[in-house]
């Protein structure tokens, strides 16, 4: 069976990568793209050789099995609710929601409509991460004691730094990926968050810097740097790293370290050309496969909300100047 997929908004740059992944995937078809910015929908549709629909309603009324929500963060909820009401399975960009209430509403809408909701956490599909998880599961480092993580990037600006569209700056944008990896790896929930947050990189209203400390319910402690601290001149977009410290050893992950280094007189700079596996393709393939077979999606909406709740707790901690417990969402 061919899984027919529509894309609800390409506001997020990742949506372009997902569109490309759908096109590259045998057994999947990109039926069309809709966006509240019609020109953006048409431009993207042209790029991916698909149809631009005139509205979200029109695309949801078409013959599709599933949608990918790639909008601004605050539109995740209404688009997910619309798709659920139309009976479509959903792959939603992270962060799942900008509040616990929105996230819960999304989960409820999908449940009552009988559709599945997956949060776009492609890092779980990284072959290096899969290898790391199997080493932990295999007991190679014994009991895990601590985890040190980073997910830094350049500041994306655009709607990402408009708080009424994004719900937050660097912390909401970059906390969720690695928090999800930690939850998945440790099979454990975050019980406490302490955060130092600042906006000194750009001196704007949005936060650009976040250093989080997390406690998990199995006693593991962790830190996570979720800052937009890579300068424009940095040779790549950013990083995802983990160092997992156990009683019998240390496992380190530098997820995007498979690069050539290019010194170019054309650009006058140094850049890294990635040669590693395209994890967006693996994630979209897993989504399409589960939709086709009617089996459970590999990552849930609950996973997305639990990770987002950690970012909300980070903001609360920075405001209070002390550790806070994230809202229990499950």
């Amino acid at each position: 069976m061919t899984v027919k997929i529509g894309i609800l908004s390409v506001a997020h740059m990742h949506a372009y990568s997902y569109a490309s992944a759908v096109n590259a995937l045998p057994g999947a078809e990109l039926v069309g793209i809709a966006d509240h910015d019609q020109a953006r929908a048409e431009s993207a549709a042209k790029t991916f050789a698909t149809r631009a629909f005139g509205s979200y309603e029109e695309l949801l009324a078409a013959d599709i099995d599933a949608v990918i929500v790639g909008s601004e963060n605050v539109r995740h909820r209404p688009l997910t609710e619309m798709a659920a009401a139309a009976g479509k399975h959903i792959l939603c960009e992270k962060p799942l929601a900008t509040s616990v209430a929105d996230g819960r509403a999304m989960l409820a809408a999908c449940k009552s409509a009988g559709v599945q909701l997956m949060t776009a956490f492609p890092c779980r599909f990284s072959p290096a991460m899969v290898r790391l998880k199997s080493a932990v599961d295999n007991g190679d480092i014994g009991k895990v004691i601590a985890v040190r993580g980073t997910n830094r990037g350049r500041c994306p600006f655009d709607w990402f730094t408009q708080l009424d569209q994004s719900g937050g700056g660097a912390v909401i944008d970059h906390t969720v990926h690695v928090t999800d990896l930690m939850r998945w790896l440790l099979k454990s929930e975050v019980t406490e968050v302490y955060a130092e947050i600042s906006n000194r990189m750009f001196q704007q209203e949005f936060d650009d810097t976040g250093f989080l400390t997390l406690e998990f319910d199995n006693g593991v402690f962790a830190t996570l740097d979720s800052s937009w601290s890579r300068p424009k001149s940095f040779p790549t977009w950013g990083d995802v790293t983990l160092s997992v410290v156990g009683e019998k050893g240390v496992l380190t992950l530098d997820m995007f370290s498979q690069n050539l280094v290019l010194y170019s007189d054309k650009t006058g700079g140094v850049s890294w050309s990635p040669w590693g596996t395209n994890i967006d393709e693996l994630m979209v393939a897993a989504f399409a496969k589960a939709v086709a077979s009617g089996s459970p999606l590999p990552i849930t909406g609950e996973d997305g909300l639990a990770a987002a709740a950690v970012s909300f707790a980070a903001y609360a901690s920075a405001k209070a100047g002390k550790p806070v417990a994230p809202e229990v969402v499950l």
Partner: peptide
């Protein structure tokens, strides 16, 4: 600190 090693996974075991 950030140089690409081309080795995204390292296990250092006792």
């Amino acid at each position: 600190f950030n140089q690409p090693a081309g080795v995204p996974f390292v296990a250092a075991l006792q």
